[in-house]
Design a binder for these strands. Structure first.
Lengths: 147, 147
DNA sequence: TTGAAAATATTGAATATTCAAGAATTGATG
DNA sequence: CATCAATTCTTGAATATTCAATATTTTCAA
């Protein structure tokens, strides 16, 4: 009897493991680039989301940047200390806090965008344009089908 | 003038972000399944690596399960308390500690394998066999090209 | 063979994250 | 309109992770 193909595969063949491994490696590389500005990846995501200049509530932000609420609150506290972002109470719903990027935050965001785009370019170069596009498409549809 | 395609894309189009998002979602689902046995994902990975019954040094393990050394040491401490694994000093190189799975650990590993394979099957079903296979292949080659 | 450098694992202090609870506001229902 | 439930954000305690330093053993060169 032939062996069934995915009967108890090694850890390295599990999708969850491959995702974790790829994520760790790419994140580590991005981190290394952002280190020039001394900013953690999560702060870059926050600044990037806020760069549309609309106010975003903490809940929205937490979803968008993949952090839970208390972690986001404390990270925002640090960014407020660094004068990168500021809080405004939402006049329409005073439970909410709307976050905005400061001028300093906006200037930093532009420098970070350059660094992040350097990484994307580097990946596209060594990994190939087609593979990169295919991978992005597959990841998007995985996320759609999984949520 | 036509807009250049990937000039300063939104965060949701960055490969690093898509990977983080997909990883978080799949990891969360796996976590939910493993919760039946009260075991964190990292411990499942450790047990799975140790299921080849060969001794693995802490360094090897740390690489394999994507944890850094001090974090692994402390997680192993907990697993030793739970009698899932045990330490043996490597007789050939006494700087090293070789880790082995206990009988209890092996029995747990089998139950966890079932849970993890349920998840893989569930993903393959909702996401499609071909997409799953394609995604795995692309992730493997990304990891190769990135490391 | 001896001493310095490298490799391996652990520890402790500093830092960060998470969980559970709390405060403030809004919505909804009788 | 009064009250109770739901939503939003923050806080504090418990837990986990990380960084730097340490101890031990091995390797290698002089």
């Amino acid at each position: 009897m032939a062996k069934s193909p995915s009967r108890n595969p090694p850890i390295t063949e599990h999708l969850a493991y491959l995702l974790a491994q790829a994520n760790r490696e790419i994140n580590r590389q991005l981190e290394a680039r952002l280190r020039d500005e001394g900013v953690p990846v999560e702060q870059w995501r926050i600044l990037k989301v806020l760069s549309d200049r609309k106010g975003h509530s903490m809940g929205e932000l937490a979803d968008a940047v993949l952090l839970n609420h208390p972690t986001l609150t404390k990270m925002i506290d640090r960014m407020v200390s660094d004068a990168l972002v500021y809080r405004v109470q939402d006049p329409d719903d005073r439970r909410k806090v709307l976050m905005y990027s400061s001028d300093r935050g906006k200037a930093l965001t532009e420098r970070l965008n350059t660094l992040a785009m350097n990484q994307e370019a580097h990946i596209a170069k060594s990994y190939g344009d087609k593979a990169t596009a295919d991978l992005k498409r597959l990841l998007e549809s995985l996320i759609d089908s999984a949520t």
